[in-house]
């Protein structure tokens, strides 16, 4: 464990807590894409299939439970909770995510470390996580006034993977033989997808104006 990875995990955790805070306190998910939340739940389910048969540490185990539990409860809130569901903008959240799920699955079948069910699912979760934010970014472009919590949520979500990139650089130079091409490339693509959001987010923060993504 290194400071970049710990900061990355804490940033990831705080992004989820910001979202849960928004949904739970103001009972609204305006501006949040249910598609992205469902994709993230799928990412965690396929990534943590080994949660009970591969024990790394208490920290690892607890964080997996938190990520699984929070992502599933967010999907539940947005689907089942009356008030929250009413604030969900179904007509704007139209990204057809079969266009990303299927290619990720095919790619995982072709490029992986080992052709076993769990390994392919784990690889699939990496590819899927890289593009899972797309429905949310599309929705943000369509949402006129993005509220602060939604902006913070997306920013933290992007920042966590950027911190993981630093973690991989650190581990590459400190752990001989540490090479993870699949993870590195997926993580790089994921972070690059946030590039223009980061640009407009930091601009709006510097000029102290409302966050607005050009359509």
């Amino acid at each position: 464990m290194n400071v970049f990875r710990l900061a990355g995990d804490m940033t990831h955790l705080s992004s989820i807590l910001v979202l849960l805070l928004k949904i739970h306190t103001i009972k609204s998910c305006a501006g949040i894409s249910l598609k992205t939340q469902e994709l993230y739940a799928l990412v965690f389910i396929t990534r943590y299939l080994d949660i009970f048969d591969r024990f790394t540490s208490i920290y690892n185990f607890l964080m997996k439970l938190i990520f699984l539990g929070s992502s599933l409860s967010i999907v539940w809130y947005m689907r089942r909770h009356k008030a929250v569901h009413r604030s969900y903008d179904k007509d704007q959240d139209t990204f057809r995510y079969q266009f990303i799920v299927l290619p990720c699955l095919l790619l995982a079948l072709v490029i992986n470390h080992k052709l076993t069910f769990k390994e392919v699912m784990w690889t699939f979760s990496l590819y899927l996580e890289a593009v899972a934010i797309l429905p949310q970014l599309v929705l943000l472009q369509r949402t006129r006034n993005i509220d602060n919590l939604t902006g913070q949520y997306v920013f933290l979500l992007g920042a966590y993977r950027a911190l993981y990139l630093l973690n991989w650089v650190y581990r590459y130079f400190t752990e001989p033989g540490f090479v993870r091409w699949i993870t590195w490339i997926a993580g790089l693509v994921q972070t690059l997808l946030y590039a223009d959001f980061f640009y407009y987010y930091i601009l709006s923060w510097k000029n102290n104006v409302k966050l607005e993504l050009p359509a």
Partner: peptide, 10 residues
């Protein structure tokens, strides 16, 4: 590096 190491991150 055996499979276990590959999955040590979240």
């Amino acid at each position: 590096e055996d499979e276990d190491d590959k999955h040590d991150e979240l």
